[in-house]
Design a binder for these strands. Structure first.
Lengths: 116, 116
DNA sequence: GAAATGATTAACCTTATAGTTAATCATTGT
DNA sequence: ACAATGATTAACTATAAGGTTAATCATTTC
């Protein structure tokens, strides 16, 4: 019901640097080193962030034909779509909120009455 | 540009228990103790989760008129909306990619036509 | 007023994670 | 072949976060 994927997606996005990397990648695919430079973080640190993003499927890595040492990262749509679906489910809550609250209040009012 | 709020929202949602609490609160407002019970976690642990959710604005707390000891928690829409806005910005990435691809394809189509 | 109840805060422990530098791997260029 | 480059992994440190039980606070009930 609540896919583990979402947990991994949210965990990946929760880290500020990683979320900013995602924002930055909207401009297009970027090389690993470029990202490390831009965010003033050591290459190893960025590498590990990218691994987290990769494992959660938020980005994918592709080699560069011209230079096989270079790794280019780009966004992947799928996890964002999943997150969007989940968000929409949550949003549906406000439609039924009032009704649910009433039912809940009545249930507990009944309990209290019984206890008395 | 990238509001700090979003960091706090995502950090709050990244924790699996907290995300499940949010899911659960779709059914309607719930008492703190009820949540602790339901998720098989100690009352203090749940209390701290709720504090995180409260600080990020994902939930709000209201006392119960009938019993001032009880605290009822409910979802708040705002942070979810913010998150949705951000997600849409990200989603726009694939549109621009598509446009770029089309432009690229047309450029090559034109080349081919000229060559003909 | 004393006991019980709902919830939070305090104190403590354990684990996960982000950062660093050094080491390694693969590829490129001289 | 060798030095340089781009990136990742290894090893280590520090800090943040979650869980627990015990203590505290406020309110209700007898």
């Amino acid at each position: 019901m609540t896919p583990l994927d979402l947990d991994s997606t949210l965990a990946a996005l929760a880290e500020p640097t990683r979320r900013r990397v995602v924002d930055y990648l909207r401009r297009g695919p970027r090389r690993a080193g470029e990202l490390a430079d831009h965010f003033r973080v050591s290459a190893p640190a960025m590498s590990r962030h990218l691994r987290v993003l990769r494992k959660s499927g938020l980005v994918e890595e592709r080699g560069l034909d011209e230079d096989a040492r270079v790794r280019v990262y780009r966004l992947r749509a799928e996890p964002f779509h999943e997150l969007e679906v989940w968000l929409e489910q949550i949003a549906s809550f406000w439609q039924t909120q009032l009704i649910a609250f009433k039912a809940h209040a009545e249930k507990h009012a009944a309990k209290r009455a019984r206890r008395k």
